[in-house]
């Protein structure tokens, strides 16, 4: 879904396959994508879908803050690293896995892709927290730390895979309230 409308219907065997097809569909041409863990790929594709709509040379784009959140941090990748160190010499921990045992790495991937030397933070909540996110986003805009904010919920844990992204600016189609965000989150 994008902007309330169905953007693409993808039939994939698994979530990784879904993200890969989206990557092909958007013609990303960014081989580093394939080194990322699922959480980072999800963050990356969310940013691709929304930031591609905004001119790269605009001040809004250059001053886009990144505010991401989820419930399970990087636990999916944490378990992979734990498995490698628990297998008594059969497997060695890999730096390529270990680096993704932080939830904010996906935010870093988005920053690198879109050249955003900007404000960024990663929050972890029991459930999606539109009120908190609304307040924090407004504080960033009010203190002129940025010109727009890309907010993302990126949850990857067991069978749960959920990405929800929106951009908050000084002007826009919808009023930036906790109720609006909640409504989109529940109906996307």
């Amino acid at each position: 879904m994008r902007n309330g409308a169905l953007f693409a219907e993808i039939d994939a065997a698994n979530f990784e396959g879904f993200l890969k097809q989206l990557y092909v569909m958007l013609d990303c041409k960014y081989p580093k994508f394939f080194k990322m863990d699922t959480l980072s790929k999800l963050a990356f594709m969310g940013a691709e879908l929304l930031l591609s709509e905004i001119s790269e040379n605009s001040s809004e784009h250059k001053r886009t803050a990144l505010v991401f959140s989820n419930r399970s941090s990087s636990l999916e990748t944490d378990r992979k690293h734990q498995e490698a160190i628990s297998s008594h010499g059969e497997q060695y921990p890999s730096p390529a896995v270990f680096v993704y045992t932080l939830p904010n790495i996906g935010v870093g991937e988005v920053a690198i892709r879109h050249k955003l030397q900007t404000e960024n933070a990663f929050f972890v909540f029991e459930t999606f927290e539109p009120e908190f996110l609304q307040k924090y986003t407004v504080s960033l805009l009010n203190e002129n730390k940025c010109d727009q904010v890309l907010c993302g919920w990126v949850e990857v844990d067991g069978n749960e895979r959920h990405g929800f992204f929106y951009v908050v600016g000084r002007n826009g189609k919808w009023k930036h309230s906790a109720a609006t965000i909640k409504n989109f989150f529940e109906h996307d």
Partner: peptide, 11 residues
């Protein structure tokens, strides 16, 4: 305060 990303490398 300020909290800016390098947008350079993840590690």
């Amino acid at each position: 305060d300020g909290s800016c990303n390098d947008a350079n490398h993840i590690s």
